[in-house]
Design a protein around this nucleic acid. Structure first.
Lengths: 197, 197
DNA sequence: GCGCGGATTGACCGGTCGGTCAAGTGGCCG
DNA sequence: CGGCCACTTGACCGACCGGTCAATCCGCGC
């Protein structure tokens, strides 16, 4: 049911279910993972799931929201009060790659959600927020004359595309560290943004 | 069954099924689309499906292979015998974006396949081929001194990331034309590759 | 016109899925 | 101690899924 009263014990259980569900979704995929899979792997009855969540879809949407919120908070902290817009962007890029690395489960869930029309509404809103975050710094950089005047939304999406693809390739396809790749991503994106100096 | 003898009529029917399946997969997603959905929407019995295909998974893999083969052929034609490596890359980028636009169904299927561990083997091989295509031109460009010496695989992936993200945003999220975005993608990628001039 | 074999039908099957719910359990508070 | 209520159980349900197959169709070569 929706909006249930939860004791501390209940809240902990709810978290358990969310965490395990995220693991299984990342491992086997959203659709192939059944509610029975989730509860069985926790050794609890199926009623537990439906006590804490409306259904499978709502649970997944909540995992997505949580992941996005966490990533955004991390970016905000990493950027701090750096005055130079380009340096803010670089800090954001590096922190994003670090987050992808630390939360590769959530990362792969975000990638999947982008391909499923069912979760498009949730994800679209998340992404627009993320893009607006970046766009703000891009506009500052344009005003400061650091990068030529172009559509900042498109630029922001290009940067995100680079990060997602490189992280996907390193973390999910090849299971390699991100350090060297992060430097390459930063260089590629910054030059892509600034154009011919 | 595997490798059946097919009359011309049979080959046409097979194509019908593949095309409609691709549409439905792109529209509703792979998992939520049942074999019954496919045959019912064609107004034929379920046996038709299993006459031409081993199962749902094999059909999807074949759609993927077909899409990849077609895209690669188009890129090869577009590049022609252009001698300048950077210009070859630009031609490849533009043709890729055009293909994404003309085959947005196949495009969204490729994106989904990248997130599903089940199709990773098929897709991985496809992608490696696509990356090697690009890497060859990148190495030429490095030798020619047009771009600094960096890992060409990473560069190729970065470029593909930009294209996929921008195309996804225009074609699937917002249903907008690609022309202006393609120019932006070309500029971003070329500058990202060449670095500070 | 007959028969062969590619092509088609759709009822049927075992299994699984998401989701329900009546029946408990146990910790806490009065 | 008693009763309340957050929490848990797991059998159960109807729907649907991927896949099978015996029966039938039908175009074509002979």
């Amino acid at each position: 049911m929706t909006q249930r009263k939860l004791t501390p014990r209940g809240r902990e259980r709810r978290n358990q279910v969310m965490l395990r569900a995220a693991e299984l979704f990342a491992e086997k995929g959203y659709h192939p993972t059944s509610v029975s899979d989730i509860v069985t792997s926790l050794g609890v009855g199926k009623g537990v799931f439906y006590w804490y969540f409306e259904n499978k879809e709502e649970l997944f949407a909540e995992i997505l929201r949580g992941a996005h919120t966490d990533l955004r908070r991390r970016q905000r902290v990493a950027i701090g009060d750096e005055p130079d817009p380009l340096r803010r962007i670089e800090a954001g890029i590096r922190e994003t790659m670090r987050w992808f690395h630390e939360h590769r489960d959530s990362f792969s869930l975000l990638l999947f959600a982008a391909t499923d029309e069912r979760f498009a509404p949730v994800l679209r809103r998340n992404q627009e927020v993320a893009i607006d975050d970046t766009v703000r710094h891009l506009k500052d950089a344009i005003v400061a004359g650091q990068i030529p005047d172009q559509d900042p939304q498109t630029l922001a999406r290009a940067v995100i595309g680079v990060l997602e693809k490189l992280a996907h390739s390193c973390l999910i396809e090849r299971d390699e560290p991100l350090d060297a790749t992060t430097d390459a991503a930063v260089a590629f994106c910054l030059h892509g943004l600034t154009g011919p100096r």
